[in-house]
Design a protein around this nucleic acid. Structure first.
Lengths: 218, 218
DNA sequence: CCTACCGATCGGTAGG
DNA sequence: CCTACCGATCGGTAGG
């Protein structure tokens, strides 16, 4: 019989660790979320391999072993960042497309919406998730990579008919498949050089891209 | 007086370590070069932080401490890879431009030469150097980064008048500065998805890019 | 260039 | 979630 049992007449079932806030507001989710957000920022700035789990713990105000209470490995944390990033990007894109549908835009207008939203996802405030997903893909397992590839396909799916329509209309002067790869390259690379504090705005960037790809001027 | 001195009547001056090949052919340069080539391959596949100096030593057939005979640090080795990559790319580009000058191409033809050469540098056989330079920039010091930025500026310089001419001629429908950034993005990103063993050839890629950027068909 | 080694750091775990 | 810890690995060095 140990001390705890001896002192307490209450049967058992007392939760371990720090007590939970009794009224909803699950602190649990907040802590897990803090790890994901902190990890995303660090992974983006220093890269996955150069970021220690101790760095991540500190960013979330935890001790060095604590991230492993929420994630079974450093890699699982990376995957969580990427997965959340992709789901959030798809959510945003879905809403942008719904808005566009109400305005019955032509193909060029639809491409503008897609490009603008992609820049937002990539370069907007607090968006480290997608850059991490784009630049740290080699650090996850093939299985994880396959899962994310499925999400990416779903994300890119709405672009296909738009590019196809522009190609048919003679506005896009390159094979659709290669054009899509080159276009995403042009957009994704902006995460390397874009600086929020100086230079062009996202609107200007969008217009430059539309001009470059399909000769569309605002 | 130690054993070596006691045994040898020869004054001193005997070189340490493995004897050099007496007739030119400095083995030295070969070993150093083997380290650079092996490091480039590993840095590209696994990333700088995830590559150990032991991996690199093994790739060059050396023991774990030996890379530090040739380079003072792992970071110095990374910088050597990047620096050599940039110089080689500039050399290639210079020759491509000389060839183009003999043919008196128009601006579109000059852009084709530049794009084609860039794909070659990026995706051609044994070209790990430039991808490493593009994707591992955060792992070098600010001073090293500044040196490489100067080389990059020199590399990009010949593109400027070509793009400017196309802009003036109404072939390029985006501001030159942003267009350049977007174009390099489209090209550079190909290092992420291009597969030599399947899909398009570098020629097809070049034509797709020319079509996309300035509506030029072969 | 090899041998032998060092101090530091890292991902992860047991137990509470 | 913290405390205390472990085994492995890593960049780098002294001396030859």
């Amino acid at each position: 019989m140990d001390l705890a049992t001896a002192r307490s007449p209450v049967p058992a079932k007392r939760p371990r660790g720090r007590p939970r806030k009794t009224l909803g507001e699950r602190d649990d989710g907040n802590r897990r979320r803090a790890l994901i957000v902190g990890a995303a920022k660090l992974f983006r700035r220093k890269g996955f391999a150069a970021t220690s789990t101790r760095d991540i713990a500190a960013a979330a105000g935890m001790q060095s072993g604590s991230p492993f209470y929420h994630f079974k490995s450093k890699q699982a944390l990376l995957y969580a960042v990427m997965d959340e990033g992709m789901r959030s990007a798809m959510e945003r894109q879905g809403q942008a497309l719904q808005q566009a549908a109400r305005e019955t835009l032509d193909a060029a207008g639809q491409l503008r919406v897609l490009v603008r939203n992609h820049f937002e996802v990539l370069l907007g405030a607090g968006s480290d998730f997608i850059p991490v997903m784009l630049y740290e893909a080699r650090s996850i397992t093939p299985r994880q990579r396959a899962s994310l590839a499925a999400l990416q396909s779903a994300y890119e799916a709405p672009w296909e008919p738009v590019l196809q329509a522009l190609r048919t209309a003679g506005r896009l002067k390159a094979e659709v498949k290669l054009a899509r790869l080159l276009i995403f390259g042009a957009l994704n690379w902006s995460a390397q050089w874009f600086d929020n504090r100086k230079g062009a705005t996202l609107d200007e960037l969008t217009e430059a891209a539309l001009g470059l790809f399909i000769g569309e001027s605002p």
